[in-house]
Amino acid sequence: MDRQKLKYLVPALGLMMTACGGSSDNNITGNGDDEQADKGYNQKVVDARAQTQYLNLATGNTVSEDGDWHVAFNRTSVQLNSGESGNGNVVGAVGDEQAGLYNASGEPDLNAFVGATAEGELDHLKESFVEPSTWKSDGVVYAFGDAEDWSVYGAGGVISEVPDIGYLVRSAEGDSYARMRVEDFDFPTREGQGIQSFNLAFEVQAAGTTQIVGPAIHFTEPTDYDGGNACYDFDTGATVDCATSDAWDVLIGFSGRDWYLKTNSGPSGSGEGGALGPINWAELSTYTSATIDSNGDSLARAYSPDTTGGLFTDKGWYEYNLQGAHKLWPNFRVYLIDSDSEDAAAPVYAVQVINYYGIDGNSGQPEIRWKKVNLTTEGN
């Protein structure tokens, strides 16, 4: 789903559920056999529960990270071999938005989603598509989301905080947590001085405990702050030097044309940090634990680290919690994957994610189908 549609939900909770939304009864685990050739497309279940799986669309085989791969899967995450994710030239674009599953305001149409099946949505995997006007390679994806998830551009070019949302955050050490809220953010973009001030409030769940404990501690701009990056260790309640310390848990900053919140994880840092959210503050403020939900189930797998991605982050392949149940529903979007943007003769594939739950009912096993397609110019 689009990141804007993740607001006020807890999307990663769906990773832990075993119920299936929009399933397929075909669990072919490879391609190239007669049955798939007759169908005109390839289909594969990728077991991405425990580690990233790298798929070559030409052969249908998974390969090593340093092998010849096009698309990588790790639970709900999908990456292309390009940019920040790999050394290839794989780029992508949306071929079919599946607009029929959404209403005029862009919200999912519950009746349409409930009635959608993998078989019924197969006709969207066509033989040819109009060539996209732009293609996208992979960049950094923050666990806190895009800046637009937690900040808003207002009058006079001033960017401020989005009210009434918050996050759960995992520390760099991976053993303590906090409930975090951006209480104030003041970035007057037209003054050319970077971020002017901020106030992030944390209520901490210490290592070895299961309870969030107040009162809140506050991370505000240091006295020598220059409008760029600032880092905080919520275990000690102290600002730390981003350049010389690995002990930070949350980084807030501005560089170039971007402003961001980072966790100490993935491409952002060497730690085991992560975040969950954004979550509506009215709901999040009732949480008593950052590691156990109201049903007594673990939230450990719900946290996301900073990672890399692009197309599948901006235009996601699923919706969540459509019937009040923490499960994931594929939207059957079709993505166009150019296997080598530097080679005009390289094949382009149409890819559709049709399921997330394996035949054992467990999550983290995306099922995809794909075919090589032709691109046409508009109107042809």
Rank of each mutant, 00 (worst) to 15 (best):
G120Y: 00
A275H: 04
E173N: 12
W317F: 08
V10A: 09
N103V: 08
R170W: 02
V158H: 04
V250L: 06
G237P: 10
E221H: 07
P267R: 10
A58M: 12
I252Q: 08
Y225P: 00
A48N: 06
V162R: 13
A37E: 14
D249H: 08
K5E: 12
E35F: 14
A207C: 04
M180T: 06
P108V: 04
G88S: 10
W281S: 13
L276N: 05
S270Q: 13
S341A: 13
K126L: 13
G145Q: 01
A147N: 05
E221Y: 00
T313N: 13
P163V: 09
N31R: 08
P222Y: 05
S289F: 11
F73R: 00
E121S: 07
F144R: 00
G157Q: 07
V169L: 05
S85E: 02
S151V: 05
S197N: 11
V114G: 02
V204E: 09
S77M: 05
T244V: 07
L13D: 06
G156D: 12
F234Y: 12
D338M: 08
A345I: 02
Y41G: 02
L9G: 06
G83V: 02
L13F: 10
E283G: 00
H218L: 08
V10W: 03
K372Y: 02
G253V: 13
Y335K: 03
L122V: 08
S85Q: 04
N111T: 12
P278I: 02
F234P: 01
T376H: 13
G274L: 03
G364S: 06
G266K: 00
K44Q: 10
A346K: 10
S151C: 04
H218S: 14
R190T: 14
N264H: 12
Q43Y: 01
L375G: 01
E173D: 13
N111F: 14
I359A: 15
G60F: 06
N61D: 14
E319V: 05
A112S: 12
